[in-house]
Amino acid sequence: MWRLFLTICLVTLLAACSVTIDPQTEDTVSEEQPTIKEQPTIKEEVSIMTDLAPMLDEEKSTTERFKEIISDVFHLDWSTGKEEDAQDVFYLALGDSLTRGVGDESQKYGYTIRLQHEMEKWPMIQSVELDNRGKNGRRSDQLLALLKKGHYDEELEKANLITMTLGGNDVMKIVKNHLFSMEKSMFDKELPRFIERYDKILQEIRLRNPDAPIIMIGFYNPFSIVIDEITPFEPIISEWNAEIETLSKTDVNACFVPVEDLFVSNEDMVYHVDFFHPNSAGYDRMASRLIETMENCNIEAMSNGLIGFGE
């Protein structure tokens, strides 16, 4: 409103500077000089602006009062866009090389730091501390052993959010041990054991932290772009992911994130040069899928309102 008022005043000043010529009759040409309206002096212009100052101050104070009302109603810190009771989040990432971020040429710890930066934009979160405990080659039996030894007790107790990637290296162990004699029955035999270990991992986590949301991330077939044909690995990976998803439904504060479909080809250049791990573009996709799934899982309710969405 005040901008409109100021514009009108400026237009009025400019109009006052225009030249006005006295009208002449059609049959007579006057030799008199046209009359020109006097321009306002600098002193008069200052006077006009001085007169406007109280109005501008009043408009400014009205805006400030409006901000105060909005802040009170919605409990927002207007200067930062954060909720007044926004809290810090401790984010613990467990798992294998996907959690560690191997292949990420931007050195951003893969999907984890991307998720951290995205969450820090949300009004309910003041800051996010990321503790990435991913390790190359880690299998479910190795993580379970570490948890039983109390290796991550302190981190688990204070975690507000936990993400986990497991399964890829359990499958690869079978591949390495039976490279020239692989049969699907070998993977079918190992799958129940893997799920039993995964279930025990969840139990160990819940002993130390009963409430924090746990995001269980699936894995993909890394041979999909090496072998340009359907391989026995497609159904194997799908079956293992399906079992992880089923397990996630046994915990009311857990949800499963599928990523298998994100890496079926390299047409969009989502693989690292090792053709095994994602590159930066691949981890971007993972982070986007993670955020989308967290919202669909209603993680805000899981976290008792701590992890909320929106910029």
Results as ranks from 00 to 15, higher is better:
residue 83 E to N: 15
residue 83 E to R: 15
residue 86 A to Q: 00
residue 87 Q to R: 14
residue 87 Q to H: 07
residue 88 D to H: 10
residue 90 F to M: 02
residue 91 Y to L: 08
residue 91 Y to D: 09
residue 94 L to H: 11
residue 95 G to D: 00
residue 97 S to T: 01
residue 97 S to I: 01
residue 98 L to M: 08
residue 99 T to C: 01
residue 99 T to F: 03
residue 99 T to L: 04
residue 100 R to G: 05
residue 100 R to Y: 13
residue 100 R to N: 11
residue 101 G to K: 01
residue 105 E to Q: 12
residue 110 G to H: 12
residue 110 G to Y: 12
residue 113 I to H: 15
residue 114 R to E: 13
residue 114 R to Q: 15
residue 115 L to Q: 13
residue 115 L to K: 07
residue 116 Q to V: 12
residue 118 E to V: 04
residue 118 E to T: 13
residue 121 K to M: 13
residue 121 K to I: 06
residue 121 K to G: 08
residue 123 P to S: 05
residue 123 P to C: 10
residue 123 P to Q: 12
residue 124 M to V: 04
residue 126 Q to F: 04
residue 126 Q to S: 13
residue 127 S to E: 11
residue 129 E to T: 14
residue 129 E to A: 07
residue 129 E to W: 01
residue 131 D to N: 13
residue 131 D to S: 14
residue 132 N to T: 10
residue 133 R to H: 14
residue 133 R to S: 11
residue 135 K to Y: 09
residue 135 K to C: 07
residue 135 K to P: 03
residue 136 N to P: 06
residue 136 N to G: 13
residue 138 R to I: 05
residue 139 R to V: 06
residue 139 R to C: 05
residue 140 S to R: 05
residue 141 D to C: 05
residue 141 D to I: 08
residue 144 L to N: 06
residue 144 L to Q: 06
residue 145 A to H: 08
residue 146 L to I: 01
residue 146 L to S: 10
residue 147 L to Q: 04
residue 147 L to E: 08
residue 148 K to D: 06
residue 149 K to D: 13
residue 150 G to Y: 03
residue 150 G to R: 02
residue 152 Y to C: 01
residue 152 Y to K: 00
residue 154 E to A: 13
residue 154 E to W: 05
residue 154 E to Q: 12
residue 154 E to H: 10
residue 156 L to D: 09
residue 157 E to Q: 14
residue 157 E to Y: 04
residue 159 A to Y: 10
residue 159 A to T: 09
residue 159 A to P: 12
residue 162 I to A: 09
residue 164 M to N: 09
residue 165 T to D: 08
residue 166 L to I: 07
residue 167 G to P: 07
residue 168 G to W: 00
residue 169 N to W: 04
residue 169 N to P: 01
residue 169 N to H: 04
residue 170 D to Y: 06
residue 172 M to W: 09
residue 172 M to G: 03
residue 172 M to K: 06
residue 176 K to A: 11
residue 179 L to K: 11
residue 180 F to E: 09
residue 180 F to I: 05
residue 180 F to V: 03
residue 181 S to H: 10
residue 181 S to Y: 03
residue 184 K to D: 15
residue 184 K to W: 06
residue 184 K to N: 15
residue 187 F to W: 13
residue 188 D to S: 15
residue 188 D to P: 09
residue 189 K to W: 06
residue 190 E to W: 07
residue 190 E to P: 05
residue 191 L to M: 13
residue 191 L to R: 15
residue 191 L to W: 01
residue 192 P to C: 06
residue 192 P to M: 07
residue 193 R to D: 12
residue 193 R to G: 14
residue 193 R to I: 11
residue 194 F to H: 06
residue 195 I to F: 03
residue 197 R to A: 04
residue 197 R to S: 08
residue 197 R to I: 07
residue 198 Y to K: 02
residue 200 K to A: 10
residue 200 K to C: 02
residue 201 I to F: 04
residue 202 L to D: 03
residue 202 L to G: 03
residue 203 Q to I: 04
residue 203 Q to H: 07
residue 205 I to V: 14
residue 209 N to C: 10
residue 210 P to Q: 10
residue 210 P to I: 04
residue 211 D to Q: 14
